[in-house]
Simulated scan of single mutants.
Amino acid sequence: MTAMTINIKFLLWLLLLFSASFCHGSELDIQCLKSVQKSVADPNGILKSSWKLNSSGVSGYICESTGVECWSHDQNRVLSLRLSSLGLQGPFPKGLDDCTSTIALDLSGNRFSGPIPSRIAHDAPHLSYLDLSNNGFSGEIPDSIADMVYHNVLNLEHNRLDGPIPERFNALGRLTTLSVADNLLSGSIPALLRKFPASHFAGNQGLCGAPLERPSGGRRVRGGLLLLLVLYFPRWLGLSKRLRASGLRV
């Protein structure tokens, strides 16, 4: 499949989402924002003061809310949620499955914690932009992110994520930006992702392979010892037999 074909399909997908915003009601999007607001801690009161979600029937009123971008200012249809650096806390927000036409989610620079939900691709299948950097998310990276076939930007740096980078990420052929730096990740980097700079994988002591210059220190030492055993054990065994044959103990 050529790049032009993929881009045409992406544009058609966007047009379908945009047209859907005129064909369906916006109550689900309003419910989405209510769920998000209810599920996060907002110590600075930013969402509480700016998200006025009780004006049902007023065209486009949710589009004036902090961090909410709409497909059209006269429709309550959420295009993106950009909630960066608002001091938000708690687990990953709930209710995103009701934001059915959202293509961008930015939660960076907050104090979210806990796992990234394994259902993230099911709840937000149309995301092309996901930024969860500079939080406290932990646990493994869900391999279901690979199901977000139109994903362009994925930023997970500066969290506490562990385990491997899912091998299924080799399916994310549209990725133009990726960073998982400064986590607790381990294992080898999937082949498709090796085109990104080494700095985007730095700060993970267990990660190894290209584009990093060499494996982690612990693995390199164990590998070196194994190589020495393979090379020299047969020689040592032969010398030992000859010494025993001459009456010497080894």
Rank of each mutant, 00 (worst) to 15 (best):
Y61L: 07
T2K: 09
Q31K: 14
S55Y: 10
L53H: 02
V250F: 05
A245N: 09
R235Y: 10
D106H: 06
L237T: 11
A245R: 13
R249W: 10
L11R: 12
L185W: 00
C99K: 01
K94S: 15
G206L: 03
G173C: 09
H122Y: 13
S35I: 00
Q37W: 02
S56G: 02
K241H: 13
K38R: 14
W236V: 15
M148K: 03
D131F: 02
F169I: 04
R235L: 15
S21V: 15
P190W: 09
S72Q: 11
L11H: 11
L88I: 06
R111S: 15
W71Y: 12
V78E: 05
E69C: 06
L127C: 08
G114V: 08
W13E: 13
L226G: 12
L14T: 02
S19K: 14
P211N: 05
I145C: 06
P190R: 06
F201W: 05
M148T: 06
W236S: 10
S72T: 11
K52Y: 07
S85N: 14
S113R: 08
G136R: 11
D42C: 08
S133K: 02
V250P: 01
S65E: 06
D97K: 15
E213R: 13
N134A: 09
F137L: 07
T177K: 10
L12T: 09
R235Q: 14
L226K: 12
G67V: 02
N7D: 15
L225Q: 10
Q89T: 13
S128W: 10
K241W: 13
S84M: 08
P43C: 08
K52G: 03
W71Q: 05
G203V: 04
L15N: 14
M148N: 06
F92K: 01
A198C: 06
N134Q: 10
V36M: 03
C23W: 10
G187N: 05
F10P: 00
D106A: 04
F22T: 08
L225G: 02
T66I: 11
D147G: 03
Q89Y: 00
R82T: 12
L88N: 01
Y61F: 14
S246T: 13
D74R: 11
S101C: 05
H24T: 15
P197C: 07
A41N: 12
D97L: 10
A171V: 01
L130S: 05
L154T: 03
A210V: 06
D182P: 00
P115Y: 01
G25Y: 08
L175K: 01
N76F: 08
G90K: 00
E64Q: 15
E64I: 07
S21Q: 11
N54E: 12
N204I: 06
N159F: 04
S59W: 07
G206N: 05
K241Y: 14
H200K: 12
V36S: 01
L156R: 01
L17C: 09
G173P: 00
D182Q: 12
S49Y: 02
G206H: 04
F10R: 14
R249K: 13
I120A: 02
N183A: 05
G238K: 12
P43M: 07
